[in-house]
């Protein structure tokens, strides 16, 4: 499989009860790119992600991972390439202990017990969850569960990782930790990253590109600096602009000027303010 790109073309999907969850969705994700799929609740984000590793099969259109179409015959390969972190870690952890759960994937990849053990320990360390090995998933905090679930995916060394609402339901500390982890993966540049979220503050910080979803269709697509300053567009899809954007726009309105590059993150905001003060 070459170069971990994702190509979705004309994808359509309806649930058995008739709900049309996706309609004519097309987008491309390049090598090492971090893309946020944003949309309100029910926009179809989870449904879209579930097509990336064949949990759901395209009813119309195609999904290609590194040039290989997602189909019955290619599922095993696809699932080695695309890892998926579910929204609810309770759906993801199924072995009696964290360690066994994280080692489950590597064992299925045909690694020896010793290799799988090492892969599991490495992955747990990478997510900062060393020491949770012997824990029973049912009795961990939501944050710990999420870290364990991510470790289980990392241990398989996928080329693309899809996160469904990675920081929802987490306390600020764990949310920051998960975000830091995603940021780290992004810096390494070896993974294609797809994240679904309705938290545009988060998307602003970790996405190279944003796909805006509304009622199963793509409304807009582009760099966050463009999309997130289009407040009417965001309002139209039921989302609220990032806090930094709101503050910056208010600042521009009050001062009556719009100096230079628009900030997306708090760091950029502070830098822009400092510069603006000097100007």
């Amino acid at each position: 499989m070459s170069h971990h790109t994702i190509d979705v073309t004309g994808l359509g999907f309806s649930y058995p009860d008739g709900t049309a969850a996706l309609e004519d969705v097309s987008f491309h994700i390049g090598h090492g790119e971090s893309v946020a799929i944003v949309g309100a609740n029910g926009a179809g984000k989870s449904t879209l992600l579930m097509h990336l590793n064949g949990f759901l099969m395209p009813a119309r259109g195609t999904v290609n991972i590194g040039g290989t179409p997602v189909a019955k015959g290619t599922l095993a390969d696809i699932r080695k390439t695309v890892g998926m972190v579910f929204q609810d870690p309770d759906d993801q952890l199924f072995m009696p202990s964290v360690f066994e759960d994280v080692a489950f994937g590597p064992m299925n990849l045909g690694q020896s017990p010793a290799e799988a053990r090492q892969a599991a320990l490495d992955a747990l360390e990478a997510v900062g969850a060393s020491g949770l090995e012997q824990k029973i998933p049912a009795y961990m905090s939501g944050g710990e569960k999420r870290l364990a679930a991510i470790a289980g995916v990392l241990a398989m060394r996928p080329e693309v990782i899809a996160f469904d609402e990675p920081t929802s339901d987490l306390d600020p500390v764990h949310a920051a930790r998960v975000e830091g982890l995603v940021g780290e993966l992004r810096r390494q540049g070896e993974y294609g990253l797809v994240l679904s979220t309705h938290d545009l503050d988060l998307a602003a910080r970790i996405a190279d590109r944003v796909v805006l979803l509304k009622e199963g269709s793509i409304i807009a697509e582009g760099p966050p600096r463009e999309l997130f300053y289009d407040v009417d567009l965001l309002k139209g899809v039921g989302l609220i602009e990032p806090r930094v954007v709101r503050l910056w726009r208010e600042l521009c309105r009050r001062t009556g000027r719009d100096p230079g590059p628009r900030p997306l993150t708090e760091t950029e905001f502070v830098a822009a303010l400092a510069d603006g003060g000097r100007a």
Partner: peptide, 24 residues
């Protein structure tokens, strides 16, 4: 519903019907 999602999670991590665990 949850059991179904758990099964999907197992498939996602290469489960092919054979249980393998880290225990020499």
């Amino acid at each position: 519903a949850r059991a179904g999602r758990l099964y999907q999670a197992m498939l996602a991590r290469g489960f092919d019907g054979e249980v393998r665990i880290v225990r020499a």
